[in-house]
Every structure is written in structure tokens, then in C-alpha cells.
Design a protein around this nucleic acid. Structure first.
Lengths: 116, 116
DNA sequence: GCAATGGTACGATGAATCTCGTAGTACGAG
DNA sequence: CTCGTACTACGAGATTCATCGTACCATTGC
């Protein structure tokens, strides 16, 4: 942070699937797991890319890498690298276009299920 | 069908979970499988209880029993016995109340994914 | 009663999933 | 260059899932 001069972002992209080729059951399967649903909920709440390590997941690093990959390969999140860390972001707009109302309904449901 | 006199319905009920105790990820997991999603889609299209054997599933009897049980235990369908066969029905109203918009979004998505 | 129909329950088996540890890579600070 | 940070990839183990065959139980019809 020594300067505010434009720096090279170094945002390396990772392979992401085309949402049009993702059947809905793959998205449902990806979200049908508490840890992954929690990740998605955090991302939706944040509304911006999040560092993988800022989720406070109570599993090992390799396990969380695995879950992030499942989410990415089912088209739910996108990831890019910046410097030494990897950021994840909800593919909210694309999901809404491909599966209208789905993410909204799931997130709303999750809120009301927080009691249990 | 010899008479149209009121007959004892013999609708034996099976144990069904209370939707309020079903977390959303269980429903998503149940629907995250092509065969089960197909069953749900058929039920939604029919709009009334369907005989288990009228789905034309291309799996063995025991396998389809298994999938129907998963759907029932995750609160997606209800089943009752009538005579020699068992009928399944979408718990559409209850699902809509518990997870507003979820089923609608999933079924709509499934329609548009029929191309692939 | 006897057989046919339509389904269940109970293993068993192979595949997929989830978890982890270890080893390794890439970047930034010093 | 060396160290620490933030991850990944790979391989292994345990658990769950999907499928099936066989045996079995109700109901209907003869």
C-alpha cells in the first residue's frame, strides 16, 4: 500500500464452466451440503469477492479447497487469484439468468431455517 | 369399480417428517439427483397423486423404492397406500410455505434445461 | 385357497463423496 | 535468498449413496 498508483491486478483466471451446460441438479447437489451452503450464504451476504481464508471454516485447508472446487465446477462461484490468495465470488447474475429465482429462494429459505 | 357407493378409502398413511424440521440443504440434496428430480417433475406436471409404477423408471423396483423413500424422508413428497399400490404426491403447498419460491424455481429451471 | 400384482425390507456391492495429511507451488516481506 | 503465507494437487481412508437381487408382505381376482 505504499503507493496508490495503478498496479497490475494479477488476477489470474481459473477454468469455469459455462452455466448453460450445467443441469440444475448439479447446482442443487452442490448446495445440498451444509458447509457449501454456508459458503454461498456468506458470499451472498458480503456481496463481493471474499478471500478463502476469511470464512472461518472449521475444516482443514485441503477440505475447504475441495468444497470451493465443487462450487466452482458446478458454476455457483467464480474464483480468481490475486497475489498470494484466491478470491471467490458468487456468480449471482449468471445464476439468476440461467435459473431465475433459484438462488433467491434458497438464500431466503436458509435464513428462516437458521433457528434449527 | 362395480359400484359408485362410497367405499372405505383404505388410505394408510406413512410416517412423514414435519417440514419445519427439514433444513433446506436436505431438500436440495434430495433434488440433486436426476432420477428423483424427474419424479418430482412428473408429479408437478400431473398435479395429483401418482401410482409409483406409472413413472416408467428404468431402474429396478428396489431402486425406485429407495428413491421414493429419500424424497419422502426429505419432505418433498407424501405417500399413502390404497389397495395394492402406493401413491405419491408432491407436498407442494407445504413446500411453498416452508421454502417460498424454491420448488417453482427448480421446476422452471428443469424445463429450460430440457435441451441438454 | 391360490396365484398374480405392486410394493417393501434387508443385505451386498461398487461408485461417489468427504475428510485429512503431506508435499509442493507462487507470491510478498525482510 | 530465505522465510512465512495462502493456497493447490495428490493419495488414502472412512463414510455415504445408488443399484440390484432375493425374500417377503398385503391386496385383488379367480
Amino acid at each position: 500500500m505504499s503507493t496508490n498508483v495503478r498496479r497490475a491486478p494479477a488476477k489470474k483466471a481459473l477454468p469455469h464452466p459455462d452455466l448453460r451446460e450445467i443441469p440444475v441438479y448439479l447446482v442443487l447437489r452442490a448446495l445440498g451440503e451444509p458447509l457449501r451452503l454456508g459458503i454461498v450464504r456468506s458470499l451472498a451476504r458480503a456481496g463481493r469477492p471474499m478471500n478463502c481464508s476469511s470464512f472461518g471454516l472449521s475444516v482443514s485447508k485441503s477440505t475447504s479447497t475441495y468444497h470451493f472446487r465443487v462450487l466452482r465446477e458446478s458454476g455457483v462461484i467464480s474464483q480468481f487469484e490475486e497475489g498470494t490468495s484466491r478470491y471467490s465470488e458468487l456468480r449471482e447474475t449468471e445464476l439468476e439468468q440461467r435459473f431465475p429465482g433459484l438462488l433467491t429462494a434458497i438464500l431466503a429459505a436458509e435464513e428462516s431455517a437458521a433457528a434449527e
